[in-house]
C-alpha cells in the first residue's frame, strides 16, 4: 500500500513536471506558429512526427543520448514533454486561429499594440482551446508514463512491469487500475477547468 502511494505520487510528479514544461514551451510555440506561418508550419510538422513515434521506441532512442537521455526519471520526463507538446501547440494555434477577425480588427483599430492584442484579446479568447489541449496532453502523459518504468522512470508502470515479469495479475492490476483512474480523474478535472474558462466569457 505504501509502495502504491509512493509510486502514484511519482507518477503524478513526472506527469506534472512534463506537462508544465510542455505548456511553457507549447503555448509560445503555438503563438509563434500562428504569427509566422512558414516557420510555424515546420515546427508543427516536427511535433507531428514526434507524436507518431511509438512510446517504447522513444524511450529506446533516449537511452543513448547524453544529458537528456539515459535511465531514470529524466528521459521519462523528456519523452512525456515531447508527447505533450503537439496537443498544446496545436490547440494554441487553433484557439488563436478561431478568434473572430472582426474582433481582432476592432482591437487593432482601438489602438492596441501587437502585444496588447495578444495578451488582452487573443490569448484570453484562445484559453478554452488551450486548456482542452492541456487536458489531452495530461491524459496522454499519464498513460505514456506507465511505460516510463521500462527505462527506470518510476511511477505506476513499475508495478505493471514487475507483475508481468512475475506473471502476477494482481500486481499488474495494482498498477494498471490506479493509472487508469488517474487518467479518468485528470480528464474530469480538466473538463471542469475548461467549462470554467468558457463560462467566464459568458458562454455558460
Amino acid at each position: 500500500m505504501n509502495d502504491l502511494l509512493r509510486l502514484t505520487g511519482e507518477h503524478l510528479l513526472i506527469v506534472a513536471i512534463a506537462v508544465a514544461i510542455a505548456i511553457a514551451a507549447g503555448v509560445p510555440l503555438g503563438t509563434f506558429a500562428h504569427r509566422r506561418r512558414r516557420a510555424g508550419g515546420i515546427a508543427m510538422r516536427v511535433t507531428d512526427i514526434v507524436q507518431t513515434i511509438p512510446s517504447l521506441a522513444m524511450f529506446g532512442f533516449l537511452i543513448p543520448l547524453p544529458f537528456i537521455g539515459g535511465i531514470g526519471a529524466r528521459p521519462a520526463i523528456v519523452a512525456l514533454v515531447l508527447y505533450s507538446l503537439l496537443p498544446i501547440v496545436r490547440s494554441t494555434f487553433v484557439g488563436l486561429e478561431r478568434v473572430d477577425p472582426h474582433v481582432r480588427e476592432a482591437a487593432t483599430a482601438m489602438g492596441m499594440t501587437d502585444r496588447q492584442l495578444l495578451w488582452n484579446v487573443e490569448l484570453p479568447l484562445a484559453t478554452p482551446a488551450i486548456v482542452a489541449g492541456i487536458r489531452i496532453a495530461a491524459v496522454t502523459a499519464i498513460g505514456v508514463a506507465t511505460i516510463a518504468a521500462a527505462v527506470g522512470g518510476g511511477g505506476l508502470g513499475t508495478l505493471i512491469f514487475r507483475g508481468v515479469a512475475m506473471v502476477d495479475t494482481r500486481l499488474i492490476l495494482s498498477g494498471a487500475l490506479p493509472a487508469a483512474l488517474l487518467a479518468i480523474a485528470a480528464d474530469l478535472v480538466m473538463t471542469q477547468v475548461e467549462r470554467f474558462f468558457a463560462r467566464r466569457r459568458g458562454e455558460g
Binding site: D100, H102, V103, E105, A106, P124, L125, G202
Partner: peptide, 8 residues
C-alpha cells in the same frame, strides 16, 4: 457593421 465586442 459587426459590433465585434470582446466576447470575454
Amino acid at each position: 457593421q459587426q459590433p465585434a465586442l470582446f466576447p470575454h
